[in-house]
Amino acid sequence: MIGLQLFYLLSDFNILETKNPEKEQWLALQSEIDQEKLTDKNAKPTNYLFNPNFISDYKGYKLGMSIEEIDRLMAFRKENKYVNSAEEFQKVTGVSDSLLHKISPLFKFPDWKQNKSNDSADKKDFAVKSFPKKEKLEILDINQATKEDLMKIYGIGEGLSTRILSQKEILGSFVSMEQMKDIWGLSPEVINELNSHFKVVVPLNMKKINVNEASIKELAQFTYFKYGLAKQIVTYRSMNGNFNNIEDLIKIKDFPVEKAKIISLYLEF
């Protein structure tokens, strides 16, 4: 017993801690990260400029606006109107002078609105520079239009003009200006311009598809028919006889009814 007690008293039970380079490196890195977080916390938030015409409910709430003030702005915008200055913003929303003084430095209005107060001479120069008039066009047949003719339209460059001409080649010819809506990349505004300067004259010798004699392959090559629909047309024809008009074709499942009028101009029965 005495020997065990002496062993316990004289022995060193402390565990020697071995140095681990990887652990020390990790602790140093963690210390740097903690320091960065502390720096970010103390940093002031960055304020970005914004157009007050497009304030959302949440944005208005964060700015300190009341629900009534936000609703007044929303109602004003629903009338397709815009505020052009901080003073007009206050007049529409009814925000207090103190809140306006706080948030108005963050307002950013488009340049064309800021220039609204310029004199008439400046307005004239601005209009000429920003919206140059293109030469007046006579109404042409879209099926006879060249790339140069199409590129005279606002919003149509080389890419879109090539796409229009390619679609015409695929179809053989256009039969309606409504087909411009099927061409990818043409905005409603550009389509309106096309309708103002072009019309469709269907060629007398335009080749049509005989829907009662065409094979599945021939029908599937038609832009408005997919292979599945072409197969259904031939199956329906073999079981029920020839088609007499477009109304007979509409009875087939998955037929694009909304384009029936245009499709009928490419078919013969």
Rank of each mutant, 00 (worst) to 15 (best):
I2Y: 07
L9T: 10
L10H: 02
N14Q: 09
Q30S: 12
E32V: 15
I33N: 15
T39A: 13
D40V: 13
A43W: 08
N47I: 07
L49W: 02
F50H: 04
P52V: 06
N53K: 04
F54D: 11
S56E: 11
D57I: 06
G64F: 03
M74P: 06
A75M: 09
F76Q: 01
Y82F: 05
S85Y: 05
S98D: 09
S98F: 00
K102P: 00
K102H: 08
S104R: 08
F109V: 05
P110H: 12
D111K: 14
N118W: 07
S120D: 10
D122T: 04
D125Y: 10
F126M: 13
K134A: 09
K134W: 03
E138S: 05
D141A: 07
I142N: 06
L150H: 10
M151I: 08
Y154M: 03
Y154E: 08
R163V: 13
E169S: 09
I170C: 08
L171V: 01
E178W: 11
K181D: 13
K181A: 14
L186Y: 07
L194G: 12
N195S: 10
N195Y: 03
S196K: 15
F198M: 04
K199Q: 14
V201Q: 10
V201H: 05
N205F: 00
M206T: 09
K207T: 12
V211T: 01
Q221G: 02
S238F: 06
M239F: 09
G241H: 06
G241D: 05
I246G: 06
L249D: 12
K251H: 06
E258D: 12
L265G: 05
L267Q: 08
E268G: 08
E268V: 06
